[in-house]
Nucleic acid binder design. Structure first.
Length: 303
RNA sequence: GGUGCCAUAGCUCAGUUGGUAGAGCAACGGACUGAAAAUCCGUGUGUCCCUGGUUCGAUUCCAGGUGGCACCA
């Protein structure tokens, strides 16, 4: 029997979690999370991790398994997720991958290139260089060390340039030499299901969910991790806006509005990313039966 | 009921000495392989309230209407 990974994704707030429980129950299987923030154990309310009941109903993996102090990234996720998936496929023919982290999903489905993890010191030095000498000095350095990537990269995007440079500096080889885009073969079939709905409805859901998070204690949660606000893992919608309020640079009301706005923008960015995925089959979040039929049909076809 | 002020983008408002208009915010589109809830790029989306009048030409001037606000009764 061929193994099937069902990817359930869509913008933040669309209702992936509750639907995923029902789908998992239908196939009597388990859920692997592909959420770059739910993976942190210090965060729960602001990342909308599944409820206690949901976690008891269906076994979840890669949720709240790491600390915000770890340098987590898409490559680590790829390896950990594949290990979990391989293990679970020993007991199940169908598995659910649920989440909205675009790059993490791609890492599992397509794989990403092998290259070293960034050295924090080198990255910090490059950040300082950006601050003191400006982006032009980074560009010049990249042009020397990796002219191929220089021609391709968005030269206005410091994060991209810094990453390329840190790989060049660490390995002595051009960053582009690592970018072979392998499209790794996976030993399982993949079915992609995307959830989306009318934009205005989605915005209402997002706004309401933010209010709900505040009632559930988001502010207290943010206060607890506030001392570590510089961590990349806390450069996260819902937390950084509250940190700004704690710092006194915005009012509480402004911070809440900004959380809503940034959540809406994040949702738009997710939709943009997923739209170009031709394997994605789109549904409204209330089309449970249609989705179950689609998945069953695809499994039959592949079998 | 009377008088005055206002009506322009989703919102708050500029503006056009008459030649069909632009800021902020919001919104929308896109890029993306070890920071990805990150990082970066791009885009005005408009019956200028309605109906007439004057004019070569009205969002702009005039009249009436409608709606809102303020004050007076």
């Amino acid at each position: 029997m061929p193994k099937t990974l069902v990817v359930l994704t869509g913008p933040t707030g669309i209702g992936k979690t509750s639907l995923s429980i029902e789908i998992a129950q239908h196939f009597k299987t388990e859920i692997v999370s592909s959420d770059s923030r739910q993976i942190f154990k210090e965060l729960s309310t602001g990342t909308a991790v599944p409820s206690k009941e949901e976690l008891e109903a269906i076994r979840h993996h890669l949720i709240q398994t790491h600390s915000i102090t770890e340098n987590y990234n898409a490559s680590r996720y790829e390896h950990e997720a594949l290990a979990v998936i391989e293990k679970l496929f020993q007991q199940h023919n169908v598995l659910l991958l649920v989440g909205g982290s675009m790059l993490y999903i791609d890492a599992v489905c397509k794989g990403i290139d092998i290259m070293p993890d960034a050295d924090p010191e080198i990255r910090n030095n490059l950040k300082k260089q950006l601050e003191t000498d400006g982006i032009e000095s980074l560009r010049l350095q990249l042009k020397q060390l990796d002219p191929t990537y220089y021609d391709k990269v968005d030269l206005k995007n410091p994060a991209r340039i810094i990453h390329a440079l840190e790989i060049c500096l660490m390995t002595g080889k051009p960053y582009s030499s690592f970018r072979t885009n392998p499209q790794k073969e996976r030993p399982f079939n993949i079915i992609k299901v995307g959830l989306n709905t009318d934009r205005e409805v989605l915005h209402q859901r997002i706004n309401r969910r933010v209010d709900e998070m505040l009632k559930q204690g988001l502010i207290e949660e943010a206060r607890r991790v506030y001392p570590q606000k510089h961590l990349n893992s806390l450069n996260t919608v819902g937390y950084r806006e509250l940190f700004d309020w704690f710092d006194g640079s915005v009012s509480k009301e402004e911070a809440i509005e900004l959380i809503k706005r940034n959540s809406r923008r994040y949702a738009r960015k997710q939709i943009t990313w997923f739209r170009r995925d031709e394997q994605m089959k789109w549904f409204e979040p209330n089309q449970k039966e249609e989705i179950l039929n689609y998945i069953t049909e695809q499994i039959k076809k592949n079998g």
